[in-house]
């Protein structure tokens, strides 16, 4: 048992626990903060995979930008706790949990078929996690998708403004 196993176990247990808190909490603010904690744990998991730049961007973009937006909207709407769910919703919850367990078992079975992927981290994995390597690849081989993502973000900004602005009579 090496140190990496220890970190992986701690990080993944905390990630799963905070994900459960996110979907189970009645208070939306509590689930938002559990989700922020979950993003930090995922950044730690990326670090165990030598993906340092992805880990940094995960914290900056998800925990920094997207969750600020979500928390801001929660504050703006002044929400109360979700009241107790009705009978029909309880039935739906049971169906969803059964579906989820079956789905996880199916994925687990398909994961443990013998694969051709190497069982050790690739020796190049330290190099390709750096910002330099990712940047070079992003601006050469993946330049066209990169530009298209820029257009997508512009259209998302314009769409959000059009949807959220007040109608002026």
């Amino acid at each position: 048992m090496s140190l990496l196993y220890f970190f992986f176990a701690i990080l993944s247990i905390l990630a799963i626990a905070s994900a459960i808190v996110t979907i189970a909490s009645q208070n939306p603010v509590r689930s938002a903060f559990a989700l922020i904690f979950h993003f930090f744990m995922l950044a730690g998991l990326y670090l165990t995979l030598n993906a340092q730049f992805v880990a940094a961007v995960q914290v900056l973009v998800y925990a920094g930008a997207i969750m600020v937006l979500v928390v801001f909207v929660i504050m703006l709407l002044n929400l109360s706790n979700e009241e107790q769910l009705s009978e029909r919703i309880n039935f739906r919850r049971a169906i969803a949990i059964i579906f989820g367990i079956v789905f996880t078992i199916q994925i687990a079975i398909s994961i443990f078929v013998p694969s051709t992927v190497n069982n050790n981290l690739h020796p190049k994995s330290v190099e390709i996690g750096t910002a330099q390597f990712i940047g070079k690849s992003l601006y050469s081989n993946y330049l066209v998708p990169f530009e298209i993502v820029g257009i997508l973000l512009i259209s998302a900004i314009i769409g959000a403004i059009v949807l959220a602005k007040r109608k002026i009579d």
């Binding site: 992927v117 190497n118 994995s125």
Partner: peptide, 8 residues
């Protein structure tokens, strides 16, 4: 990320 690190 996991597949990326394991396949280089």
């Amino acid at each position: 990320v996991a597949f990326s690190a394991f396949m280089g």
